[in-house]
């Protein structure tokens, strides 16, 4: 328990440091003293406008979106009893992608309501996969397999639409490579509402999630209704991921990477693993976004791209070091 407390304290400090760094760096660099002075002054200096309306909303977005994706991944890994499960497994990404591509390429006049359609697409794909996998109960392997099938069908449809409209893909590409550039406080408010509702329910799922880790028969023996728990956990997870995707597009790898690192740091008990994942994912996403907008001056690399490019090798490194990181 002491170790978990330490890990969370360190992550919290790291997050605060990252927030300050992210405020300070960018196309125009400021010192922390300058920023604090500007924020507390009455006049609208350039520093104040930049930090207040460009950088801070973006920072808050990263800090909110990360936990939603990570918590979604955590819950799905319990549902599937499989460390490879992430929001993509249950079709959330492909469903949202299909809806978004359809709207952007075929019904561009509906683009204003894109988040709504993306959310509906994600939810539909998820319901479809669970309906197909249902056979007197939920078998994780069947969910994963029908997920693979649905993902491949939707992926094919997405590729076809893109091929037929290859001259008009900028909007689609922005969506597919999840980016949090140019978000306003309005977006942040929406994301905050979704995330807090989702995380509240995620915390309510800790007990069944833990019991499912002991195997179906042990969970049943302990009085857990296994099928009902799987449906509830999946619903919360799908809600968190779908809400996120609909606001900022697809950001891969967070839902997979962060729960793993959290497991290595504090162990598999969801009571500590979930909060650790939440803090860690805020740090990871904020770091990735800050790197994305500063590493090449004058060019924005979407946070989704940074996550994949840096996250992949880092994940491999963690796996190699696992012996040391295993919570003993």
């Amino acid at each position: 328990m002491l170790r978990c407390g330490m890990v969370m304290l360190v992550l919290l400090i790291l997050l605060i440091v990252l927030i300050f760094i992210s405020c300070a760096v960018g196309s125009a660099g400021y010192s922390v003293v300058e920023i604090v002075k500007a924020l507390f002054s009455k006049e609208d200096s350039i520093i104040k406008v930049t930090v207040m309306y460009l950088r801070l909303p973006r920072i808050f977005m990263a800090v909110l979106v990360g936990p939603a994706l990570a918590a979604s991944g955590c819950l799905l890994q319990a549902v599937m009893r499989n460390p490879l499960a992430d929001p993509g497994t249950i079709g959330v990404s492909a469903g949202a992608g299909t809806a978004a591509i359809t709207i952007l390429l075929i019904f561009p006049n509906l683009s204003m309501s894109l988040p709504l359609f993306a959310f509906a697409g994600a939810a539909l794909a998820c319901v479809l996969i669970y309906t197909l996998a249902w056979k007197g109960g939920i078998d994780p392997v069947r969910i994963i397999l029908s997920g693979v099938a649905i993902n491949s069908v939707l992926g094919g449809y997405n590729s076809m639409l893109q091929l037929l409209n290859s001259d008009n893909l900028s909007g689609v590409l922005a969506f597919m490579n999840g980016s949090i550039s140019g978000v306003s406080w309005g977006h942040v408010r929406i994301a905050a509402v979704y995330t807090f509702i989702g995380l509240f329910f995620a915390f309510m799922c800790i007990r069944p999630a833990n019991a499912l880790q002991l195997g179906d028969e042990m969970a049943k023996n302990l009085g857990i209704r296994v099928n009902l728990s799987r449906v509830c956990l999946s619903a919360v997870s799908a809600f968190l991921a779908a809400a996120t995707v609909s606001v900022v597009g697809m950001i891969g790898f967070v839902g997979l990477l962060v729960p793993h690192i959290a497991r290595m740091l504090v162990g598999s008990d969801y009571k500590v693993m979930l909060p650790t994942s939440i803090l860690l994912s805020s740090c990871v996403l904020l770091a990735a976004d800050t790197i994305g907008r500063t590493i090449v001056p004058g060019l924005e690399i979407p946070v989704g791209v940074v996550m994949s490019v840096i996250g992949g090798p880092f994940f491999l490194y963690m796996l190699r070091k696992r012996g040391k990181f295993n919570a003993g």
Partner: peptide, 14 residues
Amino acid sequence: IGVLAQKHSAPADF
């Protein structure tokens, strides 16, 4: 009643 089935597993770090 308590039931210990043949199949059960726990995360190794528990």
